[in-house]
Design a protein around this nucleic acid. Structure first.
Length: 416
RNA sequence: GUGGCCGUAGCUCAGUUGGUUAGAGCGGCCGGUUGUGGUCCGGCAGGUCGAGGGUUCGAAUCCCUUCGGUCACCCCA
């Protein structure tokens, strides 16, 4: 038997039902905020990700699905969206067309990780990117959107962590000092932690190892002491606006993000119900990415949210079954054509869902199926009554029936 | 990538110290006299016991390998 690839999932109608509903809400929500959808290809030139996400990140080092195309070009299934959005923005030279571009996206991403609940190899993210404003109100807008989306879906048990990484070469200076401050404690570090301290020192800050956390708390410098007065002011303005908007947050000095392109504001929305994979969404500012990839010097801020984690947090993994409004029961094979014609007429004129059996089931079975599909009405076609030009319409909830003229079926439902 | 736990019908599981034709509930399908659903009753269909190999007279049960799931780490959404 051929099976799906590890870390991928098939979604059948009872699972996609809720997903479509969520997507509709997100689309509507973003429209209300002035953001439009962007869709980019799911594979890109490998170089795009090595240059934006960072050579020393795990994503680029060991998690990308990369292959060589027939012409020798290295291609990669996208492991994240921001790089693609930036690439498209630059390619279309959007800054010449409008001073600010606001995008949202929903789509599949690919990372070759060990699967876990809420972490797949093909997973889906919803995300927002606002490109063009350097102002704190833009940070606040993006963060409030993230927060309000979870509120919209009724997810209460969440908290926002926020921090600033400063700008310019602060990141490097701080990283070096951090490395130095911990150099006396190398005995307590595991091999992988030492490697991390070497290659991507900031990441050591969100270690889950109790011992390391203690050492950091007692010895690590505070990045907030490094960032410039301008950056500090920017960060405080963001917090002020969040306060005014009534959005709760926690300033976490040790929050850093794994991707290289982040600077200044970074944030995460955490669910308290998700266990290990508790980050519902993460994002921040990436003011240098556009220029670094060959565009103008244009600031930007955004976030990405995991759809699978959203669905887990909503506790909605399987719910609704397919339903219909009207079920047409044909009692004789010769009436198939009439049934389907009637179904088309009702769909066309009333825009409601009409189901016709194609399994040649018995009357009893069709009624059972009609009931299972939660139909409001069943129309029973029968050769005898059709000779008299009438059909039987059964109200499934009231268990009442009407005999009406075949030509009046549509108008019958219009009055219902 | 590292480590722990798990893998029997579509789903949730039972299956005694290895011993005949592997079970239940739910779900699915059909039917309960000639054209009526939801409740009720009856019947039927689904499993090479994740896969491959080994030990044995005999394996769902023991051993090895492998695949998949799950949890922690790693990382991140």
């Amino acid at each position: 038997m051929i099976k799906n690839i590890k870390g991928t999932k098939d979604l059948l109608p009872n699972a996609t039902y809720n997903l479509q509903d969520i997507e509709n809400h997100l689309t509507r929500f973003m429209h209300l905020h002035g953001y439009g959808e962007i869709r980019t290809p799911i594979f890109e030139s490998t170089e795009l990700f090595t240059r934006s996400v960072g050579e020393n990140t795990d994503i680029v080092n060991k998690e990308m699905y990369t292959w060589e195309d027939q012409n020798g070009q290295s291609l990669t299934l996208r492991p994240e969206m921001t790089a693609s959005v930036a690439r498209a923005y630059i390619q279309k030279q959007m800054w010449k067309i409008e001073p600010i571009s606001k995008y949202y996206y929903i789509g599949p991403l690919f990372r070759r990780e060990r699967p876990q609940k809420g972490r797949l190899r093909q997973f889906h993210q919803f995300g927002v990117e606002s490109i063009g404003s350097e102002n704190p109100e833009q940070d606040a807008e993006v963060i409030s959107i993230a927060y309000n989306i979870y509120k919209m879906f009724g997810i209460e048990d969440i908290s926002i962590k926020i921090n600033s990484l400063g700008s310019g070469n602060i990141r490097e200076i701080y990283s070096n000092d951090l490395k130095e401050s911990l150099s006396n404690f190398k005995d307590s570090f595991s091999d992988s932690e030492l490697k991390r301290l070497e290659q991507n020192p900031l990441r050591i800050l969100d270690s889950k190892n109790e011992k390391i956390i203690k050492i950091i708390n007692e010895n690590a410098p505070n990045i907030f002491d490094y960032i410039s007065p301008t950056d500090k002011k920017h960060f405080e303005s963001v917090l002020n606006i969040l306060d005014t908007m009534g959005i709760p947050y926690v300033h976490d000095n040790y929050l850093v993000r794994g991707l290289d392109y982040y600077n200044q504001t970074v944030f995460e929305v955490i669910s308290n119900k998700l266990g290990g994979q508790d980050a519902l969404c993460g994002g921040g500012r990436y003011d240098k990415l556009i220029s670094q990839l060959g565009g103008e010097d244009i600031p930007a801020v955004g976030f990405a949210a995991g759809m699978e984690r959203l669905i887990i947090a909503m506790n909605l993994e399987n719910n609704e079954s397919t339903s219909t409004d009207i079920y047409i029961i044909n009692n004789e094979i010769s009436l198939n054509g009439v049934s389907m014609l009637l179904a088309d007429n009702i769909r066309k004129n009333l825009g409601v869902a009409v189901y016709v059996d194609t399994l040649r089931r018995s009357l009893k079975s069709q009624l059972r199926h009609s009931n299972k599909m939660k139909s409001k009405f069943s129309i029973i076609l029968d050769a005898k009554t059709l000779d008299e030009n009438t059909v039987c319409i059964k109200n499934m909830e009231k268990n009442s029936q009407d005999i009406i003229d075949f030509n009046n079926v549509v108008s019958y439902f219009e009055s219902e």
